[in-house]
Design a protein around this nucleic acid. Structure first.
Length: 408
DNA sequence: TCTGGGGTCCTAGGACCC
DNA sequence: TCTGGGGTCCTAGGACCC
């Protein structure tokens, strides 16, 4: 999708159309640009740019807050349209998808014709522009769709993949970022064509496994890394996390612990939504000077409970935080998922089951009354530990639910 | 420039096991 | 006395993507 977030915002506020628009937050806030309109891009504004910098480059731009729910909604509509063209659709992100068009000619005609139909249907039904790349590999199709932007279609015919890629900068290969680009430049490789004439062995010797994958990519193949799989629905997520950057750096213990509790609750809730149990969790901690550490804990039996995350996240913080330094960001991550708890802990005594029921009720309340309807006391204050540890079952049921403060 | 938030994948070292 | 080889799991960090 072209300038997806901006385009969706324009649907909700047509007065934004044709103007310099920056999605991501207020111009004096901490944060980066999520998306910029083509008008704003003329001034050098692009995604990932700090908002304050964007403001300096383009002070007359309209800065709007992002609306993830809107993007998810429109992403779903896009998916429904794509599904009419192939049963094999993979959403690579909220605004990007791959279709396997093999064997669809009888139904939709030649692929280029199908692409035109899709392009028009997308516009008619969502009022959004997209760009389409057609090729024999995911890699080339993606690069082709980048080349086709804005609002275009590009078909790279079978057999001309290398010729299409050769004149492009190596940076255009997905997976080649700032660092890899610099490494390649240092050995005189600037274009994909330069890469293509190198021996596989040379690249492997210099860049290891990645070098080998790169050699294939230079030929237009889906070798190694992200592309090396069939197009199809994504399976379970590999990790679930939430993090928060403070508006102002802090070393206030209460604020830190309340934030961790809140992040833990959000993560745990999503684990339950996905019916997943996490075996490991990580605390992420970023100091004011941007140095970042992560510290892990592995559970003896995997969990999806708020309290388990809160308890260990807090322990990891206390064990690893240097209290002389102020903190910029905290994050809670979970991974190594399993579909059940495995062996039930003999010492559990029904604790897990009671919590599961309580949290299920809390989730239902959040569904009805919004995210802030229910929270553990720890999300608001720093004093929960004693009561929870002494009598875990008592808390959610017997404590009256208090309205949760918004923000931090 | 003063650097979000949600992810994926890879590397490398150490503990531990047979 | 001067220390193999293979495997798995765990931890920490980093590049990269949208």
């Amino acid at each position: 999708m072209d300038a997806f977030f901006v385009s969706v915002e324009e649907l909700f506020d047509p007065s934004l159309k044709g103007k310099a628009v920056v999605v991501g937050g207020k111009p004096d806030e901490r944060g980066v640009v999520s998306a910029a309109s083509y008008e704003a891009r003329k001034f050098g504004v692009h995604s990932a740019l700090p908002l304050r910098t964007a403001y300096k480059l383009c002070p007359h731009a309209i800065f709007v807050e992002g609306h993830p729910e809107r993007y998810r909604d429109y992403s779903g509509r896009v998916y429904e349209i794509l599904r009419r063209f192939s049963p094999l659709v993979e959403m690579a992100s909220v605004d990007e998808a791959y279709l396997d068009m093999s064997g669809t000619e009888r139904l939709h005609g030649p692929t280029l014709r199908a692409a035109h139909t899709l392009h028009e249907m997308m516009k008619a039904e969502t009022q959004l522009n997209c760009s389409i790349g057609i090729a024999t590999s995911r890699l080339v199709a993606k690069i082709a769709s980048d080349q086709a932007k804005p609002n275009g279609i590009l078909h790279v015919l079978p057999g001309v993949e290398s010729r299409f890629l050769a004149p492009l900068e190596v940076r255009r290969i997905p997976g080649v970022g700032k660092v890899m680009e610099k490494n390649l430049h240092e050995v005189g490789i600037r274009l994909i064509g330069d890469l293509a004439i190198l021996e596989e062995k040379t690249l492997e010797a210099r860049f290891g496994k990645w070098g080998l994958a790169l050699a294939g990519k230079a030929q237009g193949l889906d070798s190694g890394g992200w592309f090396d799989s069939e197009i199809g629905e994504r399976g379970d997520p590999k990790s679930i996390s939430h993090e928060h950057t403070f508006g102002v750096d802090t070393k206030d213990c209460g604020q830190l612990e309340a934030t961790l509790a809140h992040l833990s609750e959000k993560v745990a809730r999503r684990l339950r939504e996905h019916h997943l149990f996490a075996r490991t969790m990580h605390l992420k901690l970023r100091y004011s000077d941007f140095t970042t550490i992560t510290r892990a804990h592995t559970f003896s039996s995997p969990t999806q409970l708020d309290i388990d995350l809160i308890e260990h996240t807090r322990k990891l913080l206390n064990d690893n935080w240097d209290p002389r330094r102020t903190i910029r960001l905290l994050g809670v991550n979970t991974s190594s998922f399993e579909h059940d708890q495995g062996q039930l802990d003999l010492m559990d005594g029904g604790r897990t089951e009671r919590w599961r029921k309580a949290l299920e009720a809390a989730d239902a309340l959040r569904d009805r009354f919004g995210e802030s309807a229910v929270a553990l006391g720890s999300g608001m204050r720093g004093r929960y530990k004693e009561r929870v540890q002494d009598n875990p079952a008592a808390l959610p049921g017997k404590e009256p639910a208090k309205p949760k403060k918004t923000g931090q």
